[in-house]
């Protein structure tokens, strides 16, 4: 196994393909068309592409929630099948257990690992402190704002110490202000913790603000058509010329892909 933190490869995708069968027509639908990708330890990777192209399917395949039709996925060199706590997922709709308090949402995965209730609570409290929700541990999800809910979800996922954090448009349901706040929060969190992140978004601005690598997918079936490297230092400034320049380049690619996919 490769050493973590040394910049080695955490995740590797080899010719990943996914076909769906349309229920109504029985027609085969190709969603992913030969995805090859390597993601290094501790990197922050964003995935963008035209809507409906298969971004989410790609992420869910990595997460083990969707079984690829062909191709392979390796985590730290080991092939993966099915979901597992070493690949933590954060969903757009938070997916918090509404009947569990904030604290108990975070301990959920911990107790499944066989950690004692006392240790799980102590560990969960640390993660809640990390996401700034120490005073909210006894509240239920319905009592929280959208941003707070997503922070609980992140804490819950980080608590099981995944090798990689898979985020599926996690801030898409938030209003613009909360969204900016969460982006800043995530960058800070990522810089403090050695976690690798794959972040799917339909917002180019968000991708440029967050990612070191920005993967551009084609329209369906999705292939990787662009790879942008973003060396801008954190925290990033949206009014920077380099920022707006990169954003414009990505938008150009995206406009072209969208035009192609509509033809």
């Amino acid at each position: 196994m490769e050493m973590s933190g040394s910049g080695g490869t955490v995740l590797e995708l080899r010719s990943l393909e996914k076909m769906f069968t349309e229920k109504k027509t029985g027609r085969e639908l190709e969603v992913l068309d030969g995805i090859d990708l390597e993601i290094g330890q501790g990197r922050f990777t964003c995935v963008v592409g035209p809507s409906g192209c298969g971004k989410t399917t790609l992420l869910r395949a990595i997460g083990g929630l969707v079984e690829p039709t062909s191709g392979e996925i390796f985590l730290d060199g080991h092939p993966v099948t099915g979901p597992g706590p070493e690949r933590g997922m954060v969903f757009q709709e938070y997916a918090l257990f509404p009947w569990r308090t904030v604290l108990k949402n975070v301990t959920f995965g911990l107790t499944l690992k066989g950690i004692s209730a006392i240790d799980a609570r102590a560990s969960a409290r640390e993660y809640l402190e990390t996401v700034g929700l120490t005073d909210y541990e006894n509240l239920y999800p319905r009592e929280l704002s959208g941003g707070m809910k997503q922070r609980v979800a992140i804490a819950r996922t980080l608590a099981v110490e995944p090798r990689i954090l898979l985020m599926d448009e996690p801030f898409a349901s938030l209003d613009a202000q909360a969204r900016n706040g969460m982006q800043e929060f995530l960058v800070e969190l990522w810089r403090e913790t050695p976690v690798t992140i794959v972040f799917v978004t339909h917002s180019v601005d968000e991708a440029v603000f967050l990612g070191q690598e920005i993967i551009g997918l084609s329209g369906r079936p999705a292939r990787i058509v662009e790879k942008f490297t973003n060396e801008l230092p954190y925290p990033r400034n949206r009014t920077d010329a380099a920022f707006t320049d990169l954003r414009a380049r990505i938008l150009d690619y995206l406009t072209k892909e969208m035009a192609d996919s509509y033809v």
């Binding site: 997460g63 083990g64 929630l65 099915g82 979901p83 597992g84 706590p85 690949r87 933590g88 997922m89 969903f91 709709e93 997916a95 918090l96 257990f97 959920f108 995965g109 499944l112 690992k113 979800a153 819950r156 996922t157 099981v160």
Partner: peptide, 14 residues
Amino acid sequence: VDPYLEEAARTLGA
């Protein structure tokens, strides 16, 4: 029951 909850649980090791 929201299918996302089941998926979240699975990714947490359930």
